[in-house]
């Protein structure tokens, strides 16, 4: 199998499964963690990711799951074209991340790691997919939804600084268009960012 990327949380391989192109997401053991913690995290996150991907499928495109093991998920290969690379030329594309996040929140799912590397364009179905549910959870708390929005803001500041204003506005437009309580959640985001360490003048735009 071919290693595609080595993340912090898992290694991603490209391979085949029952005659189909497949992605193997492997949560390898971390040599620096004590085994109790390492095993707990790998098991918990693998199971959680598989469950949440299934739950999310009712409202957003996520890859089809072929197999779930102890610390491995084999899933449909939806491609390599990431939203991350598209935003520079077309900041308004950020809208799709907003829509998907809003739809997830509407059914009580916090993504936990929403960023532009986790939104992938599938050429054959002509649709964007959202992936990487290892840190996600079922919740009804506005605080959790607001944390997702805060994380997007942080990622945009760091990775899409040149197009930040337009991209983040597009994201919020998409988010508000499908989220019933968007206004209240956005208020909560401001509260989180005020609470952050010395966050007084953080550049959160509205």
């Amino acid at each position: 199998m071919e290693l595609i990327s080595k993340g912090a949380e898992a290694d991603i391989y490209k391979g085949r499964w029952a005659g189909l192109d497949a992605i193997y997401k492997v949560r390898a053991s971390k040599p620096y963690m004590i085994s109790e913690l390492d095993e707990r995290l790998r098991r918990e996150r693998t199971v959680r990711e598989a469950r949440m991907m299934l739950a999310a499928r009712q409202v957003v495109p996520t890859p089809f799951i072929f197999y779930v093991g102890n610390s491995i998920i084999v899933m449909e290969d939806v491609g390599r074209r990431r939203l991350k690379e598209e935003l520079g030329n077309k900041p308004t594309e950020a809208r799709i991340l907003g829509e998907y996040l809003g739809r997830l929140h509407s059914v009580g799912i916090m993504h936990g790691d929403p960023n532009t590397s986790n939104v992938i364009f599938n050429e054959s179905s002509n649709r964007w997919y959202i992936i990487d549910f290892g840190l996600s959870l079922h919740t009804r708390r506005f605080e959790d939804f607001a944390t997702d929005v805060h994380l997007v803001n942080e990622v945009f500041i760091v990775q899409h600084q040149e197009v930040y204003e337009e991209a983040f506005r597009s994201f919020l437009d998409g988010y508000s268009s499908v989220t019933e309580n968007a206004g209240l959640i956005v208020e909560k985001v401001k509260e989180i960012e005020r609470r952050g360490r010395y966050a007084r003048r953080r550049s959160f735009i509205f």
Partner: peptide, 18 residues
């Protein structure tokens, strides 16, 4: 220590991967 340091090591890995 184990929990707090592992969290920091993991987020450092995330930043490094990025």
């Amino acid at each position: 220590q184990e929990t707090a340091f592992s969290m920091l090591a993991e987020t450092s890995e995330r930043a490094l991967a990025l």
